[in-house]
Design a protein around this nucleic acid. Structure first.
Lengths: 173, 173
DNA sequence: AACGCCGTTGAGAACCAGTCCCGACCAGGA
DNA sequence: TCCTGGTCGGGACTGGTTCTCAACGGCGTT
């Protein structure tokens, strides 16, 4: 098991944003889709971020840069990035979706602290094998998976307090 | 790996509904909460069902029995069942939640066909161990987990057609 | 059996993430 | 530069879920 990060999301290597932007340009050209200002700006925000961003976060980041895009465009562009395989969509049970730049092909999964909201990522070498076995045994063609472990982390005092309370109440509750 | 069911959800043992209802009565009494007609009717629908039900499904099932409950009550009661540990909430990316009676303590996970919507369940003995290891390595107290594998099943001709198309396009896309 | 407390119920309004509409706009090739 | 087909964007809309609040109904007490 490899811990990728204990901060909010996977940190892409430095300078990665520029490379990703070139990939985006290529993918758009290949599909004969225009490379517009809005697509560039939204992709820039995504590629430079080290966090899981909501559509709202993206709009706010654009505003902070003096840029602007209608929310329909933000949603459309995020969906486009997902379709092109440059981003992934996550639902951490907050009532809205979050998006994360997909750097490389390595799949990783999430631990979500329900107390402070912190999300950390991990990779476990056995998970890929297990899901591959499962799929073949069921005649199932697996396309994506979502593995989320909800619980409490030990970062803040409040989280540790909740951990203790939960252990005392017992997992039976 | 044990296949629990290839139908839509876990099938509780016969006569289970009555037992579950007694458990509900006890839990409510313990918390000094009233056991109302609506709670009984909604719980009955849940406990007798072998499928993952949406709030709408529950309301429809009530109508079919000549009963009725306001939608606020349906949502509140489902949330209550989850809180009491008698049901679990699922999000299969359909834009709404589904609920399933939690029978016993055995955790199971889901394979979701994105073509026909069929959900099958599985248990894998190694998953529990892996998540327990992960949690302890991260100083994390795991409370629940959600493991969902999205893909295409081989039940219908349309699903198999999609499987073939996906395999030819390659997982790289 | 009647009373009273207090949580529950329910109809509809409110909320809100996400989608749709459609006229104006623009990237990119001719 | 002109053309053209896809994109943009503001606002209306959708639909699942939550909120509001007055009326109601368990259930323990008297």
């Amino acid at each position: 098991m490899t811990v990728l990060s204990t901060t909010v999301a996977t940190r892409p290597p430095l300078g990665c944003a520029a490379v990703m932007m070139q990939v985006l340009r290529g993918e758009l050209r290949e599909r004969e889709l225009p490379f517009t200002h809005q697509r560039e700006a939204i992709a820039q925000v995504m590629f430079e971020s080290t966090r899981h961003l909501s559509a709202d976060d993206v709009a706010a980041a654009l505003r902070q840069r003096g840029e602007h895009a209608g929310k329909a465009t933000v949603y459309r562009t995020l969906a486009l990035l997902v379709e092109l395989g440059l981003a992934t969509e996550h639902d951490f049970d907050e009532g809205f979706k979050r998006y994360e730049t997909k750097v490389g092909a390595a799949q990783h999964d999430h631990l979500i602290c329900t107390a402070c909201g912190q999300v950390s990522t991990f990779q476990h070498p056995e998970l890929d094998r297990i899901f591959a076995e499962l799929a073949s045994e069921h005649g199932f063609e697996a396309i994506t998976r979502q593995v989320k472990v909800f619980g409490t982390c030990s970062e803040t005092a409040a989280c540790r307090e909740l951990q203790r309370a939960y252990r005392e109440a017992g997992p039976a509750s």
